[in-house]
Design a protein around this nucleic acid. Structure first.
Lengths: 229, 229
DNA sequence: TAGATTGTTAATCGATTAACAATC
DNA sequence: TAGATTGTTAATCGATTAACAATC
C-alpha cells in the first residue's frame, strides 16, 4: 500500500509522455520495483488490467487516486515555523499532489503574524478555532523535539487523526490516530553506516581492490542483509 | 539495522537524564519498539548487556556510534538550494549528530554566491574541485525532479557513494552506491489513504460510532495490514 | 540463593518473487 | 490462432515475537 503513491507518480509521468497504456513490466521499471510485486499490489485494488495488453494509464490513475483518498483535497495544518517549517510551507509539491496547506502555527509570539506564501502564522492557541473553520485533516509537526508531544496532544484534541512528525522523537498518540515520522538525521546515519561498512570492506586484509568492486559490493550487501538492513 | 539510530537517540536522552544503565524493556519503550526485537538487534552488535542488570548506557552509545561509523564526522554536500535546500542547510540536527554540511551547490547562477549559515553557494560545476578538497562522503539532492538524475550522476562521478534524495523521482545509480529517498508528498498521501479508510469505516451501514472507536480502529488496522500496509 | 534480565531458540507471520494458467 | 500480458499460486525468504534457558 505504501507503494501506491510511487506508482501514481510514475503513472502521471507516463500520462504526460502521452502513453495511454502500460505493461506491468514498464510501470514496475518506472517505479523501481519488481513487476510481480507491482501486479500483486494492483490486484488488491481490483482487476483493472487487460491480459495481453496492459493497464490503461488514465483508469489506473483514477483508481489509485480514489483508493488513496486523493479525489478530495485535504487541508493540512503545519505546526512549527522554523527552518524546516518555512520550507514545508513553501513546498510546491504538496499543492500539486492534492494537499492544501490551510494554516500555519507557532508557539513563539515573535513568529506569529509573519506571512509565508499567502498564509499568516497563527499562535498555536488558535488551533481549536481554525481547525474547525478549515476542517483540518492532517497535522504536520516541525517543532523542536521538546515541544512535539504537546503539539501532538493538541492536534489530537481538536480531532486530527493523521500526523506527520518531523521532530526527532517518539510520539505517543491514541489508538485510531495514524502517525508517520520523517527523521532527516536518521537517514544520514543509515547512509553513514553503509559508508563505514564499505570502508571496512576495502580495508580488509587480502581484500580485492579496484576492478573487483562489483563483486565486493555484492558480498557487502549480502552481509548487511544478514543483520537486517 | 535501520533502527540503530533510533536506539542511539533514545540512549542519548537516557544519558542526559543521568541514567547509566537501562533494561531492554526500558530502552525498547523509549525507542517505541518491542523489547525482544531490541534485544535481537543489539545481539547482532555483540554482547554488551549484563544478564540480570541491563545495558550500560555509555558503553552501548559507544558501540552503536562505532557500528554506524559516527566516530568520524562525515562531510555532506547539499545540491539544490531552493526552499528545502535552505532549510536543510540551516538544520541544526545534522551537526549535532555527527555530520558537517561542507558545501552547497546550485545550477542557477542567480543563487550562486548566496551565503547560508556561513557557507557560500557554489555552482555545480565546481563540484569536482570542492568534493576533493572537502572529501565529501554523502550527497544530498534537493533539486527539482528534472535535474535529480544528472546531479546523481555528477555526485557518483566525483566518488560519492551515499546519496539522500529528496526529489520526487526514481534515480538510477551504479552497484555499490547507496541511495535513500525521502518524499514528503508520499508521506502525506499515505496518511491520506488512512484518512480515507477511516472515513469509509465510520460511514459503513450499521457501523458503530462514538464509544466503540477503539474497536473500530483495531478492525480498520487489521484490514489495512491485510492489503500490505 | 532468589530475583532479574539478557541472549537465543523456535514458531509465526507477512512480504517477495518466480512461474504459469487464464485470457485478451 | 499466436503472441502477449495479467492475476494468482506456491515456494522462499526474512522479520517479528513469545518463551525460556543461561547467567549475572
Amino acid at each position: 500500500m505504501a507503494r501506491l503513491p510511487e506508482y501514481l507518480r510514475a503513472l502521471h509521468n507516463l500520462a504526460d509522455s502521452g502513453d495511454d497504456t502500460v505493461s506491468s513490466e514498464g510501470l514496475a521499471a518506472a517505479a523501481g520495483v519488481n513487476s510481480a510485486k507491482l501486479r500483486k499490489d494492483l490486484s488488491h485494488l481490483g482487476s483493472y488490467g487487460t491480459r495481453g495488453v496492459g493497464y490503461d494509464v488514465a483508469l489506473l490513475i483514477e483508481q489509485i487516486e480514489y483508493v488513496l483518498g486523493l479525489t478530495q483535497c485535504r487541508a493540512v495544518a503545519l505546526v512549527g515555523i522554523g527552518n524546516l517549517g518555512h520550507a514545508l510551507a513553501g513546498y510546491a509539491g504538496f499543492a500539486s499532489r492534492g494537499f492544501r496547506i490551510a494554516a500555519l502555527f507557532d508557539a513563539d509570539p515573535a513568529r506569529v503574524g509573519e506571512e509565508i506564501s499567502g498564509l499568516t502564522v497563527r499562535h498555536i492557541d488558535e488551533l481549536p478555532t481554525i481547525a474547525a473553520e478549515e476542517s483540518i485533516a492532517i497535522g504536520v509537526i516541525a517543532t523542536p523535539a521538546a515541544a512535539a508531544q504537546t503539539v501532538a496532544d493538541q492536534l489530537v484534541a481538536v480531532g486530527v487523526t493523521s500526523i506527520l512528525n518531523f521532530a526527532p522523537c517518539v510520539l505517543t498518540v491514541p489508538e485510531g490516530v495514524d502517525m508517520r515520522k520523517v527523521d532527516l538525521a536518521i537517514e544520514l546515519q543509515i547512509l553513514s553506516f553503509h559508508e563505514h561498512r564499505k570502508a571496512a570492506l576495502t580495508a580488509l586484509p587480502g581484500g580485492l581492490v579496484g576492478g573487483a568492486e562489483e563483486t565486493d559490493g555484492r558480498a557487502g550487501r549480502a552481509g548487511v542483509e544478514a543483520v537486517g538492513s
